[in-house]
């Protein structure tokens, strides 16, 4: 049982067993990315407001948000790394660990639950070989999590795979959906 998004933010996805932070850190905000960040900052009267967009830029280019990336974002926006971490851990969509190439979120909140969403979760866990929620498959391809209300309740069960939403997913459709992924 988690106590709010603060705890859930990181807890949804488990840390992989192998170490991942030994390579030297390459900054995200150089060249075009730096320019994009500057343009974003200009939309708001305070630099801090660019924090969520900046973290999205990090995640889009690196796949997850590392402590080093948080420190870089902090420096760019004149915040402290601790403050940035506080924000990152509040929101469920920032990954604090590397995740599978296909990040699969299955909605299991009440409206989808009454339409059989839990069977869809089971089908994804079996077909991807992940076995357990929040665990990345051994080939690094998949991570499956349950997500709270995707806001597509009339299309139960919606499943979001990276940026794409698949509507009205049934357990029978799962193998075909997975086979069509790049």
């Amino acid at each position: 049982m988690s106590h709010g998004p603060s705890a859930a933010g990181g807890a949804l996805v488990r840390a992989p067993e192998h170490a991942h932070a030994h390579e030297p850190y390459e900054p995200v905000f150089v060249g075009a990315m730096k320019q994009q960040l500057d343009e974003t900052v200009a939309k708001y009267p305070a630099k801090m407001a660019a924090l969520l967009p900046a973290l999205w830029m990090v995640q889009e280019s690196r796949g997850w948000v590392s402590d080093e990336a948080m420190a870089e974002v902090a420096e760019q926006l004149e915040l402290t790394p601790a403050y940035v971490k506080g924000v990152v851990t509040f929101y469920t969509m920032y990954h604090q660990h590397p995740v599978g190439r296909h990040f699969i979120q299955v909605c299991t909140t009440t409206p989808c639950n009454v339409c059989g969403a839990e069977d869809v979760v089971k089908a994804f866990l079996e077909e991807t070989g992940c076995g357990e929620l929040g665990v990345t498959s051994s080939d690094g391809k998949f991570t499956v999590i349950e997500v709270e209300c995707l806001g597509a309740c009339g299309f139960a069960t919606p499943v979001q795979i990276n940026l794409d939403v698949h509507e009205s997913v049934t357990p029978e459709r799962v193998p075909r959906i997975l086979a069509a992924l790049p």
Partner: peptide
């Protein structure tokens, strides 16, 4: 301007929404 949230139901509450937009915890 269009701003993208990052996953938190509570940000639909109007004052949490403002905090989130300002770059804070919601």
């Amino acid at each position: 301007h269009v701003h993208k949230g990052a996953g938190a139901y509570i940000c639909g509450e109007e004052t949490a929404l403002m905090n989130s937009l300002e770059g804070k915890r919601g």
